[in-house]
Computed example of a mutant assay.
Amino acid sequence: MRAWSTSTTTLLYGSGVVQADMRDPEAVYGHPELTSRIDPDRPVGLLMLALLHFVTDDERPYELVRRHLEHLAPGSYLVISHAESDTSPDRADYATDEYRASSADLRVRNQEEIKRFFDDVSPVPPGVVHLSDWRPRDHQPYYTSQQVSGLAGVARWDGPRG
């Protein structure tokens, strides 16, 4: 499995870069530089890390994720991390204030809204959980959910459900 990641401006994969807008999956997956390097019939890893909270509701983020998935081969994996507002609302307000001057709007979502991104895929254990609870290791510092306000999940895409 070859892993690659997207951002609002750049798609990184293997040993190349394609400038693209992740809000236009058709342009991303149809780009000749990408199609010359990635076999669309083989599974990949789609990493949407700290990305979807920059996609506002009017940009239809759930539909956008589904459009990305529809370009992936069955057996691909989706990885999402997203700022969340339930655990520490004051931190979510702070993050929103910090990004107010940036060129991107920030949409911090609650836990149920974030879990909706995984409706069409099969989450792998431990599921969609706080960042601090995703595979903690004994030899590394442990951060509480109050210190790290975000959820993360990994899921397998097995193709459209019939």
Rank of each mutant, 00 (worst) to 15 (best):
Met1Asn: 04
Thr6Asp: 12
Thr9Pro: 00
Leu12Ala: 10
Leu12Met: 01
Tyr13Gly: 15
Ser15Tyr: 08
Val17Ala: 01
Gln19Pro: 04
Met22His: 12
Ala27Ile: 06
Ala27Tyr: 02
Ala27Trp: 10
Tyr29Thr: 00
His31Phe: 13
Arg42Gln: 15
Leu47Thr: 12
Leu52Gln: 08
His53Asn: 07
His53Tyr: 02
Val55Ser: 04
Asp57Pro: 06
Glu59Ser: 04
Arg60Gly: 00
Arg60Ser: 00
Pro61Cys: 11
Glu63His: 11
Leu64Gln: 06
Arg66Glu: 15
Arg66Gly: 09
Glu70Ile: 01
His71Arg: 05
Ala73Tyr: 15
Pro74Ser: 01
Gly75Ile: 07
Tyr77Lys: 06
Leu78Cys: 10
Leu78Lys: 14
Val79Ser: 05
Ala83Lys: 09
Glu84Trp: 03
Ser85Val: 12
Asp86Thr: 13
Ser88Asn: 12
Asp90Cys: 10
Arg91Gln: 12
Ala92Gln: 01
Ala92Glu: 03
Asp93Ala: 03
Glu98Pro: 00
Tyr99Ile: 08
Ala101Met: 14
Val108Trp: 04
Asn110His: 07
Gln111Met: 08
Gln111Arg: 06
Lys115Thr: 05
Asp119Phe: 15
Asp119Gly: 00
Val121Glu: 05
Pro125Glu: 13
His130Ala: 15
Ser132Ile: 02
Asp133Arg: 06
Asp133Lys: 01
Trp134Met: 02
Trp134Glu: 00
Trp134Pro: 04
Arg135Cys: 12
Pro136Ala: 09
Asp138Tyr: 14
Tyr143Gln: 02
Ser145Glu: 15
Leu151Met: 07
Leu151Thr: 03
Arg156Trp: 03
